[in-house]
Every structure is written in structure tokens, then in C-alpha cells.
Design a protein around this nucleic acid. Structure first.
Lengths: 222, 222
DNA sequence: GTCTATAGTCGGATAGAC
DNA sequence: GTCTATCCGACTATAGAC
């Protein structure tokens, strides 16, 4: 909107600050991150932060919003597909299980496989452990839709009603994915992973989907 | 050892600093926590931190060691039982599944149910996301024994060899527990939990153990 | 719009009295 | 062992030149 691209190397001071913010707020906490670090990494003057974002906190909020938009864009199509299938009501268990696997598979691809994963995950996970005012955005636009989507699919797959228990099951399934993000260093040491290459991501994906399928299937066998 | 209990209110400045350190390093990050906050919460002079612990970092290391000792004391008996059963080699699948459930159940009790859980978990989880020199202690004395223990039990339960895949499965199972710690705020919003009462902990425990059992059983059905 | 300079606060650590 | 006083560096934010 208010772009100018005045000199040459400038690709937008605002955007550069947000990109740098993702890294610095991720590597340190909100409190420990300094505007100096961010400005330096962005190649921008410190005074640009109060100027564009009304200070450190404004920048942080913009960073979280930016991340949430990316995450939402990534899962939105699948969530919508799930919503449509659920609305129709004639969802066979086998299809429902496949949809759960699609959704969890996407989560694995993103949280473990995507190169941006580490950068985004640090901030999102911290926002879970220490909710700030930005947590609202994360919950409403990412966590809630995913949990509800998975819970609805589990309900459809097992023929049981959509209850709080289903949401708990959904969170537990998501926890399997989260573990590999949180405990990356543990995986590196325990099984000698180099840091989640394409093959390693594929192995993780297979393990998680197998276990999830087993868990769901056992629910309607009993 | 060098105790004196000089005046009256003093229950050991060192211990008070470690207790306060658990809270303050947990609520903020290592970087964002300040020695002033910790000293104030401990009711001790700031100068006591360099005096007893050689500065902020020394105190942090002592805090992590303290936490690891508590965690280790909590899981050690079960880990040893698992080790003995595995060594004997004549472990029936059903028994192995029960041992996995015992171990995971203990993790739920501690990470979700125990009052100290939140305090400890913040620091341990952060040490996973941002390994510092203290991570070594956490891995060697807590993570590695638990993962190896669960992996050995899954192997015994399914009759498959103990491989890296088994360790990945173990981590995924642990992730289910972790999810409820990390995403506590999400659970509060999504299913209206108040904050993990005894009944809520029990529900979580049931969901996780059911799903884990289902996942393991599906492994030797195929 | 982008910079320098600086104000005002707070960080960890130390010196030295008691 | 415990305190006060203090050093020195780093923090965010602002004022004002360009």
C-alpha cells in the first residue's frame, strides 16, 4: 500500500522486520528478544520498530499474525474438506480415518518437514506454554479448527457421538506430531537422526499414521 | 554439610534460591529471568547468587539438576522393573503392554496431575526446544531411560526386534502425554477444563492409555 | 522515511563493611 | 554469611536533524 522501495536493497522495512522477528522471538523468548537484535538481523534501524509497529509488543503481535496466516493457509483446504464431508453426514468410517490421516500427515509435513517449521513452531509452542494476548489468535484460527476437525472425523470413524472425549483424543493424536518437534534434539541423540531429512520425515509420518490408525480402529472393535 | 541455620526464618539460602529459581526460570526463560526476581522471591540478598552458585548460570544448572533428581526418583522404580523383566526375556506381550501403561500412567500422573508438574515442565520443555549445556543431564538421566524402557516394552509386546522405529514409537506415545501439558490452555478452552483436577487427570489418563493399547495391539495383528 | 543521539531504566557482578 | 553501594553494560523508546 504505502510502498516506495526508495533506495535499492530495500525489500520493505516492515516485512524485513517481521521476518527477523520470527527468528529472534523464536530463538529467544519475547522478553529476552531485543529490538536491537531484530533490527540488526533485518538490516534496519532500531527506530523503525516504534515507527512501524508502535514498539516491541506491536511487532510481536504482527509476527504472530503473520505465522497464523501461514499456518491457516496450510491447513485450511483440508479443514474445509473435512467440514463438507461431515456436513453431508454420510461419511463411512474408512473415509473418516483417511481424512484424519490426511490432516495429521499435513501436520507432520509442516511441523517436522517444512523448513519454516522450526521457526514457526518455537513461537507457537511458547505461546501455548505461556499464553499472551496473542494466544487468542493462535487458538481461534489454528488450534480450534484442527481439533474440531479431527474430533469430528474420529466420531465419524467410530460411530460415537462428537464429545469432549473426542477432542481429547484429537489433542493426543496431535501430541504425537508435536513430540517430534519438541524433542528433536532427543531424536537426534536417541536414534541418530541428522535433523529431519526427507527420509526421516517420512519415517516419522509412517509411525504416527500407523499408530493413529491402530488407535482409532481399536475404538470400534470394542 | 555447611549448615548453620543462623537466625530463625532461614531454611537454607541455597535451597530457597533453587526453589525460587524453579519458579522464575520457569515463568520466564533463562535469559529473561533476572537474579533480582529470584533473590526477591527467595527472600535472599542478590549477592547470595554469585556467592553460592558462581552467578546466574550456576544457579540455573543447580535448578536443572534438582529437577532431574526429582523426575528420576519418580520414574526410576518403574524403569528398573522394566529392565529386570526385559533381561529375563520371558516377557509375555500382555505383561509388556501393562508395563508400558504403567510407565505412561506415571508420566500422566506427574506431568499432568502433580502440583509440581507445571513448574518442572516449563523448564524441561524449554530445555528441549532450546538445548543448553544442561540438556545433557535431562537426556541422560530422564529422556533416554524412559524412551529405551518404553521401546523395549513395545518390542516385547509385538515380538518385533528393538529398533530405532521402536524408539520413535515410544516418543510418539510420550507425545500424547506432553500434549496435555503443552496445550493446557487449549484444553481449557476447547473442552472447558478448569486446569486438571483429579477427575480431569483421570480422563486424560484413560484416553491416552486406551489409544496406546490400541496402537500396540494393532501392531501384532498385522 | 530513515538516521543519530540520548534519556531513563534495569541487567549481572563485585567490593568491602559488618 | 549477609548486607549496601556501586560499576558498567544493555535495554526500549523518543526527539529531532536530514
Amino acid at each position: 500500500m504505502e510502498s516506495n522501495a526508495k533506495t535499492e536493497g530495500s525489500a520493505g522495512a516492515k516485512d524485513r522486520l517481521i521476518e527477523a522477528g520470527i527468528d529472534v522471538f523464536g530463538d529467544h523468548s519475547y522478553e529476552a528478544a531485543t529490538t536491537r537484535m531484530i533490527a540488526k538481523k533485518a538490516g534496519v534501524n532500531i527506530a523503525a520498530i516504534p515507527y512501524y509497529f508502535n514498539g516491541k509488543q506491536g511487532l510481536y503481535l504482527s509476527v504472530v499474525e503473520h505465522i497464523v496466516e501461514k499456518l491457516q493457509a496450510f491447513v485450511q483446504p483440508t479443514i474445509e474438506m473435512v467440514g463438507e464431508q461431515t456436513a453431508r453426514g454420510d461419511l463411512a468410517p474408512a473415509e473418516a480415518i483417511l481424512l484424519v490421516e490426511t490432516l495429521l500427515g499435513k501436520m507432520v509435513d509442516f511441523m517436522v518437514g517444512a523448513p519454516e517449521a522450526a521457526r514457526f513452531a518455537q513461537i507457537v509452542l511458547r505461546e501455548h506454554l505461556h499464553p499472551s494476548s496473542a494466544y487468542e489468535i493462535v487458538y481461534d484460527r489454528v488450534m480450534c479448527p484442527i481439533i474440531d476437525g479431527i474430533a469430528a472425523m474420529i466420531a465419524a470413524a467410530t460411530g460415537q457421538p462428537l464429545s469432549d472425549t473426542m477432542k481429547m483424543r484429537a489433542l493426543a493424536f496431535m501430541g504425537q506430531v508435536m513430540a517430534f518437534r519438541v524433542a528433536r534434539e532427543t531424536m537426534v541423540r536417541a536414534v541418530g537422526f541428522a535433523g529431519y531429512s526427507a527420509e526421516e520425515t517420512q519415517m516419522i509420518r509412517r509411525v504416527i499414521l500407523e499408530q493413529t490408525r491402530g488407535a482409532i480402529e481399536s475404538m470400534f472393535r470394542s
